[in-house]
Amino acid sequence: MRNCILTVFNLPYLVKGSCVDYLPFFPLSRDQLAADDITLDAFGNFAYKIYERVLATGTGYFVEENTELNTIGTALYDNPVGQLAWIAAKIILWSDPRAGTNGSLINPEMTLNTVSLYYLTQAFANTDAPLLFSAFQYTNQYWLPEAVAMVGNLVSYTEHDFGGHSSGLDNPFGPLSDLIKIGDYFDIQ
């Protein structure tokens, strides 16, 4: 699954922490970065180039999700084939081009499993619990640590040089290694 969320559905007070690789807003533009005197390192520059390519060629998805969510949600809600088409296309387009190597789990079976998880579950809880963020080089958007910190209680930010938007499939060891660190921030019982 792309985002590893340690949560009890709809009970945010029970959330011990979360480990995510994606945020529900666009990253800062290059103009905003310059205005805030933020300089990107090599990882950030590479990731921004991927993001800018997506902005130039793939924003229809974002426009639809941000402006007509109920339309697409209703159309796909009880349509597993529609969800497969919608999600699988993004897994293919937004994954590390080295998918299927270096521990990547991207294959037809895992794509179906991922779509099934989206289809069969419906929950996300907001919380102020410790937040761990995993940045992947080939993701379609890149958030600086400062932007992630505005979302929640950021305690860890890790850059991974392998993986894309579907990091749990592309590079399952990346999010797993980050998720294991969450134990440093609370007692797991």
Rank of each mutant, 00 (worst) to 15 (best):
P80S: 07
M110I: 13
R53D: 09
T67R: 15
N79D: 15
A56H: 05
L84G: 06
V81F: 11
A56W: 04
I72E: 01
V63K: 15
T59E: 04
Y61I: 03
Q83T: 04
E109K: 13
V54H: 01
S104V: 08
S104G: 08
Q83F: 06
T114P: 03
I87S: 00
G73D: 04
M110G: 00
E64R: 09
T111S: 06
D96G: 10
N102L: 11
L76H: 10
S95C: 14
L112E: 03
V81I: 12
I87M: 07
E65V: 14
W94G: 00
Y77I: 05
V81E: 09
L84S: 10
D78A: 13
I92L: 15
D78V: 10
R53M: 08
T71N: 12
Y61R: 03
I50Q: 03
G100W: 14
Q83D: 02
E68T: 06
N102A: 08
T57F: 06
G100D: 01
L93N: 07
N107C: 14
G73Y: 10
N102E: 15
T71C: 10
T59K: 08
T71I: 15
I106T: 06
L112D: 00
W86G: 05
E68V: 01
N79E: 06
T57V: 01
E52W: 02
Y51L: 00
M110T: 15
E64T: 10
L105H: 09
I106N: 01
S104D: 00
A75I: 08
N107Q: 05
A99L: 08
R98P: 07
G100V: 14
V63S: 10
E64F: 08
F62E: 04
T67Q: 15
T114H: 06
A75F: 09
A56V: 02
Y51C: 02
Y51T: 05
N113A: 08
L84I: 07
S104Y: 03
A89H: 13
T57R: 07
G82N: 08
V54P: 00
T71D: 10
M110L: 11
E52R: 04
G60Y: 06
P108Q: 09
E68L: 09
T59F: 11
G58L: 00
L93Q: 08
V63L: 13
L112P: 00
L105P: 09
I72D: 00
A88G: 12
L55K: 00
F62V: 01
P80H: 06
V81R: 13
E109W: 13
G58C: 05
V81M: 10
L76T: 07
F62K: 03
D78W: 13
T67L: 15
A85D: 12
R98W: 05
L84F: 13
N107L: 07
T101M: 14
E109T: 12
D78E: 11
P80Q: 04
T114W: 04
G82W: 03
W94T: 03
L84W: 11
V81W: 05
N70L: 14
G100C: 13
S104Q: 02
D96M: 07
L93E: 12
K90D: 02
T74S: 13
I87W: 08
R98C: 09
P80W: 13
L105S: 06
I50N: 01
Q83W: 11
L84K: 11
I72P: 03
T67N: 15
G103R: 10
I72F: 12
I106E: 03
